[in-house]
Every structure is written in C-alpha cells, then in structure tokens.
C-alpha cells in the first residue's frame, strides 16, 4: 500500500549565533494511511521540528516531505495554507481556541476558512461537538469551560473537516491524568473509526501506548521504530 506520508533524506539545521545545531539528521520515514503514529522523544530530540515540517510550518534544510503526493517542502505559502486547510487537522497543547467565539463557532472555524456556508458548517460542528460529548456546551465560550472541555473542542475542530491526516502536538500536556485518558481515547477512537492518519508528538511514554507505531527520536535521528501489534486497550470505563 502506498504510504500517505513519505519523508526522504530530511535534514534540518538551525543556526544559533555561530553554532550550527542539527535538529533532524537524514530522516527517512513512511507512514501508511490510517496509521496512528506516535513520535516520542525528550525535549531537544527534534520531535517538534519533525512535526512542524510535516505540517508545512517550517522548511527543511534538505530533503523532501511528501504528503498525499504533494511535496510540501517546496510548496508556496499560499499552497501550504490551502494544503493545511484541506488535508490537515491540528490539535494543540494549549488548545488555541478563539476567545471571542463560542464552542460551536470555534469548531466550525476550519469550515469557515473553507468558505462553507454558515448553516452547513454549524450543522457539521454540532455533530462533531456531540461526538466529543459537548452537546450541552455549544454556546459556551472557551473561558467558561474546563481544560478537558476546551481540548475536546480542539479535537472537534481538528476532525470537523474530516482531514486525511491529523497532527496532535502534546495534546495532553496541559491536562491532568484522568482527563488525559479521556482525551487520548477520544482522539484515537475517532481516528480509528474514520480511518484517518493520526500523528501524535509527545514526550510522555504513556501516551505512546495508544499508538499502532512508536517512533523514538533521539538527537535528530529515529532511534527506534516499533509497531504495536495489539495496541493496549485501556480500561473501557475510567475508574
């Protein structure tokens, strides 16, 4: 099966003053469609850099990143915006919801960018909010919700456009352990159900347990690439 993401010979070098820091060193990686992949690493391992490059937020020093047949390393700003709008969902560590919009409008935002008419996008957003269990918080503003609720809004926003690829950058970094379990279950369950490719970046080993495949990054290299044949099923009912 043709991989949905193809990384070839990827290298990123930062220049800090006169020093050159190699953040990513000749990465080669294929990720198949529908895979739930966890990029694990300590801070400074290059995992964030890799994610940024996958999402087209940062340009590589060398090499190519091909997603769904598009080399995003060579795309223009405009093409990248369009690519992100149509092919990617993004879940942030600090949720990044718009304070002036309510939950529904926040979820509908990516559809707004896609010029979807209001009625249609709010219907989709409502459905998505229901899926993340926030039907009763549709009109709530971010500051009227808990961290876990906000992140669920963030998840709904990432999935509402049904993108082929979803990136999650430390999605549970700001959450307590109980909420972490809820959120991770939700993220992976939706991705599995819809057969979307999910790439999670984290430093938390426990998060890696939710993935099909764990890439361990160290000093800009892929130190190990483990496939989990039978992903550990977390307890169905949280204690």
């Amino acid at each position: 099966m043709e991989p949905i993401i193809k990384i070839r010979n990827l290298r990123k070098v930062y220049r800090i003053g006169s020093e050159r820091v190699v953040a990513l060193d000749n990465i080669d990686l294929d990720i198949a469609a529908g895979e739930i992949c966890c990029i694990l690493g300590t801070s400074g391992s290059g995992k964030s850099t890799l994610l940024n490059m996958l999402a087209g937020l940062e340009r590589p020093t060398r090499g190519s990143v091909e997603i769904l047949g598009t080399d995003i390393a060579r795309a223009s700003e405009k093409q990248l915006a369009r690519f992100r709008r149509e092919k990617i969902g993004f879940i942030f560590q600090s949720y990044n919801l718009l304070g002036s919009l309510n939950a529904l409008e926040n979820v509908a935002l990516p559809l707004t960018f896609r010029r979807v008419p209001r009625r249609k996008r709010e219907l989709a957003a409502k459905k998505m909010l229901k899926a993340v269990g926030l039907s009763k918080h549709i009109r709530h503003r971010p500051n009227q919700m808990s961290g876990g609720q906000q992140q669920r809004v963030g998840i709904a926003r990432a999935y509402v456009t049904e993108p082929p690829v979803v990136f999650a950058d430390e999605p549970t970094g700001n959450l307590d352990s109980k909420t972490t379990v809820e959120v991770m279950e939700m993220i992976t369950a939706i991705a599995r159900e819809r057969k979307q490719t999910l790439i999670i970046v984290t430093h938390d080993r426990e998060i890696a347990d939710y993935a099909d495949r764990i890439l361990f990054l160290l000093d800009g290299r892929i130190e190990s690439d483990t496939r989990v044949e039978h992903p550990q099923t977390p307890p169905a009912e949280p204690a």
Binding site: A81, R84, R85, F92, N96, G99, R114
Partner: peptide, 16 residues
Amino acid sequence: TREIGMMKAIGCPISS
C-alpha cells in the same frame, strides 16, 4: 499573535 498563528496553522488564507 497566538490567535493569528493558530489560524494560519489550521489553514486560514493569508489574504483573509
């Protein structure tokens, strides 16, 4: 700044 960055990350057209 954060807001604008987020909007760009999830694909808001620069012209918008």
